[in-house]
Structures are given as C-alpha cells and as structure tokens.
Simulated scan of single mutants.
Amino acid sequence: MPILSTRIEDELREGPEISPELDQLMRNARKASDFLKALSHENRLLLLCLLAERERSVTELENILSLRQPTVSQQLARLRLDDLVTTRRDGKTIYYSLANDDVRRVISVIYSIYCEPAAASEK
C-alpha cells in the first residue's frame, strides 16, 4: 500500500518545482522528525509510556523510575518544550499528562510492538 499520493510521486519525478502538497509534506516531515527525536531518549519514552496510562506527579514518576528529581524534571521539560506533555498544578504538586491523542496513539503502537507480553515472547 503506497504512503505517498500518486500526485506527489509524479511531482518528485518531474523535477524541482514544488507544489503546495509537497511543501506541506516536507513541513510535516520536519514535525515528525522532531517528534521522533523527542521519543528517541529511553527515559523520555518511559515517561510517555507512564503518562499514557494516566496523569502523574513528578514525585510519582521519580519513584516509579527510580530516578533523581533533576533527571526526571529535565526530561519532562524537554517533553513539554516539544508539546508532548502538559502540566497541571495542585498546590505545590505539578501533574503531567500527555498533550494529545496523537502522542497516545504513537506510544500505544510502540508499546504494542515492543512491550506487550505476547509480542515480547515471540521475538
């Protein structure tokens, strides 16, 4: 099943003129690349997996991952900068959650490929 439309495929063969569709594809590729870079760090990926389940506090994330607070906060700051997580403050406690369903969908696919018990036992 092709990923690119036949129109974009034709444009790629025809030469240097870039249509609005190809220009949009290129901009979207940049966004996807930035998204994948954010996921490429083990701790950030673990944080996103935990947040895919439910909203969690920084302290809860530290305890689950057995990481120091500065490490967790640094990775959460990167995820926040990349618009992958959002925050909510309740008194002194900051809670993190996934920013949108697109993030949840990607994390779900990654989890199903690499982490589900049935898939892991087959590899």
Rank of each mutant, 00 (worst) to 15 (best):
S40E: 06
E42L: 07
N43K: 12
N43C: 09
R44P: 00
R44I: 10
L45W: 06
L46F: 08
L50E: 12
A52W: 01
E53F: 08
E53T: 10
E55G: 03
R56M: 09
S57A: 12
S57V: 04
V58D: 02
E60W: 00
E60K: 00
L61F: 02
R68C: 04
Q69M: 10
Q69W: 11
P70T: 06
T71S: 11
T71C: 07
Q74D: 13
Q74E: 14
L76W: 01
A77L: 12
A77H: 15
R78N: 13
R78Y: 14
L79M: 09
L81E: 15
L81C: 12
D82A: 15
D82K: 14
D83G: 07
D83H: 10
L84H: 03
R88M: 12
R89D: 07
D90H: 11
D90G: 08
D90W: 06
G91L: 02
G91W: 02
K92Q: 15
T93K: 08
L98Q: 05
A99C: 12
A99P: 08
N100L: 05
D101L: 02
R104S: 05
R105L: 09
S108E: 04
S108T: 13
S112D: 09
I113M: 02
Y114W: 10
A118S: 15
A120Q: 15
A120P: 02
